[in-house]
């Protein structure tokens, strides 16, 4: 059983009238710290320590009841075919270190999409001309779609992250050959 908020309330009631400013409770399953602020109100900090009990499909099932061939079904589910969200061939990502030249970087971490929606043509491709406000892709983070702008003027020479792939913040997404006058926007 985990500590419930009702438990926390009970503990608070117990210590509220006592000259106690802090209470630290440590068990093998959790730690709880209660602290009194200067105006007499309380804060709580709870840390669950118990390790998850992960069952693996293919292991002996936790109960023998009515499983049938479910184990094999579950094995299939555990390794789902990596369904590409988009139906285009992924572009080969730039191998390892990024060579010199201007790159467009991921403004925040998330999934990089090259087209506005599945099946649509990509925003840009190798050879495309871009300007600072040209949208070159989308980064999906926490269910929000964020447009990625080129931020510079030039021609796309290489796409470094394939469609529907995860990109950490700052990851180079594509390489741009700058125009002679092109400058970082």
């Amino acid at each position: 059983m985990d500590l419930t908020s009702a438990d926390v309330q009970d503990i608070l009631q117990l210590i509220d009238s006592m000259p106690v400013r802090e209470l630290h409770l440590s068990t093998t399953r959790f730690t709880l710290s209660l602290r009194r602020t200067d105006d007499g109100e309380w804060t709580q900090e709870l840390q669950l320590l118990s390790e998850p009990t992960v069952i693996h499909p293919g292991d002996d099932p936790p109960t023998a009841a009515g499983l049938g061939d479910a184990t094999t079904q579950a094995s299939a589910a555990a390794e789902p075919a990596a369904q590409p969200a988009f139906d285009r061939q992924p572009v080969a990502a730039g191998a390892g270190a990024v060579r010199e030249g201007a790159v467009v970087r991921a403004p925040l971490l998330g999934t990089f999409y090259r087209a506005p929606r599945p099946g649509a043509p990509p925003f840009i491709d190798v050879g495309s001309r871009v300007e600072p406000d040209t949208v070159v892709g989308i980064i999906e983070t926490m269910k929000l779609m964020n447009s990625v702008c080129a931020g510079l003027t030039g021609t796309v020479t290489e796409i470094l992250v394939a469609d529907a792939q995860f990109a950490p913040q700052g990851e180079p997404l594509m390489r741009i050959a700058l125009d002679a006058t092109g400058a970082r926007g």
């Binding site: 669950l48 118990s50 992960v54 069952i55 589910a77 789902p80 969200a85 999934t111």
Partner: peptide, 19 residues
């Protein structure tokens, strides 16, 4: 945290919710 609080945990796929 939910995995630590549950009796058992079973993996259903990668981070991307679609899978």
């Amino acid at each position: 945290v939910p995995a630590r609080a549950a009796d058992l945990v079973i993996r259903i796929g990668p981070g991307q919710a679609t899978a």
